[in-house]
Amino acid sequence: MAEIVVKNVAKSFGAFQALHSIDLTIADQEFMVLLGASGCGKTTLLRIIAGLESPSQGEVWIGGRRVDQLPPRQRGISMVFQNYAVFPHLTVFENIAFGLRMKKLPQAEVRDRVERTAELMHIEQLLQRYSGQLSGGQRQRVAVARALAMEPDVILMDEPLSNLDALLRLEMRAELKGVLAGSKTTTIYVTHDQVEAMSLADRISVMNGGRIVQAASPVEVYRNPAARFVGSFIGNPPMNFIAATSDGDGRYRVAGLDLDGPAAAGPRLEFAIRPEDMTVAPGGLRAAVRVVEPLGAHTLVTCEVDGAVFRAVLDSDLRIAPGDELSLVPKPDRIRWFDPETSSAVPVAS
């Protein structure tokens, strides 16, 4: 059992406040992804949980034990580093065995565990090589095998796939998910890649400016962003936003269109819709087509609505050319509203 609790953790480097009072609970065996742009504090948070960085304030608990004063080796964690940190002076076998030898496990068990994890990561034929003789993908596998061999309660991963090429990344992603699901560990995975986050996570914590903006399941984060930032960061292309003014009675005027919105809200809101949640039909938003990009299954259409860039992902059967005028009707249940003052989501009373 290894539930991770982060209580009121903050970190500053000199005058720079990297983390503002983070509270986060990660359930036992949960796969939590920390997602955000570079500099948002996700790696700092991971390193604080690992013990490689000490928090300026707050507490870290792992498996019911307060660990923020303990060195990393006493926290029951293992870690996969961004640059793998596979020791160049040791063979693959000794790299995987490193932690086990530190624990002074009997030789037979060390060999057994190394062979088992090497097989799991498909590197059993590389055990006698040095890391200088391995490809990036193989080093990555060694780094994961080394972490798994410890049979830890918690695995921390710091952008483990970011140094791999696109195809390998796809392959490793699927493999990691399978392996980690079988290992019954609690996983915290840092990435700036939203597709990686969506495909791996049980829950995603979206971070921005040293704060967790939203922590929820991938679908929830995608469908119901808690803040404008989440909508604009997640999804490719991102959410569209248009300023809206109240007509009273929960009706809002959006680029000349009259729509149902939150009843109890201020005079100004922001209307938001994902590019794929629109159909071409009469009586919608008037959009002037600027660029048309056929992507096979869909066509990405960049237009101008109300003087701002607006993207729509439409069926590729539609014949659209730059200069056309479209009428885009948003699906009513997919419309979201944000408060322009606080940037947070405003729910529509149901």
Partner: peptide
């Protein structure tokens, strides 16, 4: 850091 995490 890796050595530290893995118990050294």
């Amino acid at each position: 850091e890796a050595a530290e995490v893995f118990g050294a």
